[in-house]
Design a binder for these strands. Structure first.
Length: 427
RNA sequence: GUGGGUGUAGCUCAACGGUUAGAGCACUGGGUUGUGGCCCCAGAGGCUGUGGGUUCGAGUCCCAUCACUCACCCCA
């Protein structure tokens, strides 16, 4: 089609799937707020520097995936590729850390990364994002992970595994890095070209490689967990202990490395095997140095993000959502009846009843068909005969029964019949 | 950014290089003076993604381009 289309990798979310989004968002809000999180909304556009400094100059996200450009004034800006940086910026800018009550935030909204689209990967995608500041205790690490699990459980998600790791702190990681680099140097000729490059730029990332040769090399590689400092080790041990006491299953994955530089100590990912190549539906970790690096006070932080598209794809594979609500349909025959029906329709809506009609004066049969398609529970039929007597018929579409009522009793009667659940929507 | 696959009706898909491009579902009307689902009949709906080329002739073959899709890469 030569017509204007949506930009590549950016999708319309159409009415027939919006119920999924609403359910996920509502569930998220309920769970997060029970845990003491407050919603925050930050701009989708930020100064480029914010992302470069927080995520890391040499990460893939910053190097090649950002929607970055110069605005009309010449300032370098970018659509946000993730939410943490913006929330930290807002925290610092508004001194939110000074308020002991408001240090836990959640945000829901679109993110942008210029990658080649694929199943579960889009250029505009949506995240539910959670950040908690000011607490270094592993109790919070465990609680954050527990909340993530509870959220997914409440949605009825099955078949996902929580991977857990500790990346250590900057000091123990740098000593490990040297260890790993020398090991990789010894096996340099076996590595794939990508890993040969990564060996210098970001050796930890070699663990993510899916090439078999590389994985076999890594079998004997030094493990980060063996060389983290005592403090980090004990932090990690306590996280695991709390999780066990919370009966939250996890899989320690010493090879899990995450793609953003600011993570340290606890990191985690929720993995599925049902989405093809894009197997992470959520992930996060601790980032104690980040607030300070961005010019704020030296306070710790931890958070995670959930990919809504991926989550919903998974839910759709295993569940169904109903279409909303009780509906009343007004069927009218003849010009005067149509006018009366139109006025009645608006009265019903004013009373909070979901109702609709056929506006184009089709045959009664056609109108009944439409009512059936809409799954209307009741149809109000106003023909010329009824109108002349000041009456209408109410047909119960489920029981196939029908009776005559005077027009002025229609609204109260329908209110009584569907009043109880008129605001329910079975999601 | 690199590779593979696919673009035909609103949707799912047919059509050996050869008349006027078909089917199912969905839609509209009728079968029933004014009553839904099932059934039957009829109708409407297409610049075959776009632009070039080969050919007497292209939905079909070639090139380009755009989009979708899967994978690499990376991540949510």
């Amino acid at each position: 089609m030569g017509l204007i289309q949506a930009i590549r990798g950016m999708n319309d979310i159409l009415p027939n799937e919006i119920a999924w989004w609403q359910r996920v968002e509502q569930t998220a809000r309920m769970v997060m707020e029970d845990f003491g999180y407050y919603e925050i909304r930050t701009p989708v556009l930020e100064k480029l520097e914010l992302f470069a400094r927080s995520i890391g100059e040499s990460t893939d996200i910053v190097e090649k995936e950002m929607y970055a450009f110069a605005d009309r004034k010449g300032d370098l800006v970018s659509l946000r590729p993730e939410a943490t940086a913006s929330i930290v910026r807002a925290l610092i800018q508004h001194n939110l850390h000074a308020d002991p009550l408001v240090r836990k935030f959640y945000a829901i909204g679109p993110m942008f990364r210029h990658e080649r689209p694929q199943k579960g990967r889009y250029r505009q995608f949506h995240q539910i994002d959670v950040e908690a500041f000011g607490v270094d205790d592993p109790m919070l690490d465990a609680e954050v992970i527990y909340m993530l699990r509870l959220f997914l459980e409440r949605l009825g998600l099955v078949g996902v595994v929580l991977h857990l790791n500790s990346l250590g702190c900057p000091s123990c990681r740098s000593s490990y890095r040297i260890l790993l680099q020398s090991y990789l140097a010894d096996h340099a000729e076996t590595l794939c070209p990508d890993c040969e490059r990564r060996r210098h730029t970001n050796p930890l990332r070699v663990f993510d490689c899916k090439v078999e040769r590389c994985q076999s090399v890594l079998g004997d590689a030094p493990i980060l967990g063996d060389s983290i400092c005592e403090e980090c080790a004990s932090h990690f041990a306590r996280v695991k202990s709390y999780l066990s006491q919370l009966q939250t299953p996890f899989l320690v994955n010493p090879r899990m490395v995450r793609g953003l530089d600011y993570y340290m100590r606890t990191t985690f990912e929720v993995i599925t095997d049902q989405l093809g190549a894009q197997n992470a539906i959520g992930g996060g970790g601790r980032y104690n140095g980040l607030v300070k690096d961005l010019g704020g006070p030296d306070i710790p932080g931890i958070g995670f993000a959930i990919g809504m598209e991926r989550l919903i794809l998974l839910l759709q594979q295993n569940q169904q959502v109903g279409t909303p609500s009780p509906r009343i349909f007004v069927a009218a025959l003849g010009e005067a009846s149509r006018t009366r029906g139109f006025l009645l329709l608006q009265e019903l809506r004013k009373e909070g009843l979901a109702a609709d009609m056929e506006y184009e004066g089709r045959s009664l049969k056609s109108q009944m068909r439409r009512a059936d398609k809409l799954a209307a529970q009741h149809v109000v039929i106003i023909g010329e005969n009824e109108l002349s007597r000041g009456e209408a018929q109410i047909r119960d579409m489920i029981n196939k029964t029908q009776n005559v009522l005077s027009l002025d009793r229609i609204v109260p009667t329908l209110l009584e019949m569907c009043g109880k659940d008129r605001k329910s929507s079975n999601g």
